[in-house]
């Protein structure tokens, strides 16, 4: 079974995993970081999005063993417990969620999007969110939240 060493939310982690262990399973079950959600488990919904070496990926479609040596960031890394970063606050203020299940993935995708493009257009936000599915909101408030969160992060 592969031994892996990686950096998760700025902490070094060394564990033994099975070959088949998914990165999302490793994050949730081995590390207990349950902010990352497993939705569809078929690479469609994006609830499981984390950053792998700075890039958003669907952690249900990456093996934990493939993250050996990598840097992983989950939703828990964005703000200290009990606080919100500007993007999370924008989701809160715009009511960019209803049940909230998709929100961690939405926020992690939004964070990567604004890191690459700090001042996105609405069309760019919608294109950037194509890999994240929300079955409650109809996306209007999510898009508004990402645009406003981007603005807040530009300062």
């Amino acid at each position: 079974m592969p031994d892996i060493t990686l950096n998760v939310n700025r902490q070094a982690v060394s564990k033994t995993v099975e070959g088949r262990t998914l990165l999302v399973e490793f994050i949730r079950e081995t590390l207990g970081l349950t902010g990352t959600h497993m939705g569809c488990d078929t690479s469609q919904c994006g609830a499981c999005v984390v950053h792998l070496d700075g890039k958003p990926v669907k952690s249900c479609t990456v093996l934990a063993a493939q993250a050996d040596g990598a840097e992983v960031k989950t939703i828990e890394s964005l703000a200290p417990e009990g606080e919100m970063n500007p993007m999370q606050r924008a989701f809160h203020e715009h009511h960019g969620l209803q049940c909230g299940f998709c929100t961690p993935g939405m926020v992690m995708t939004a964070m990567a999007l604004v890191a690459e493009n700090p001042d996105p257009t609405e069309a760019q936000v919608r294109h950037g969110l194509e890999g994240n599915i929300c079955r409650c909101t109809g996306y209007q408030n999510i898009v508004a939240a990402v645009l406003d969160g981007a603005k807040a992060m530009r300062g």
Binding site: G46, P56, V57, E130, G131
Partner: peptide
């Protein structure tokens, strides 16, 4: 192709 996360892998 696919979506941003798929394109990153």
């Amino acid at each position: 192709i696919g979506d941003p996360q798929v394109r990153n892998r």
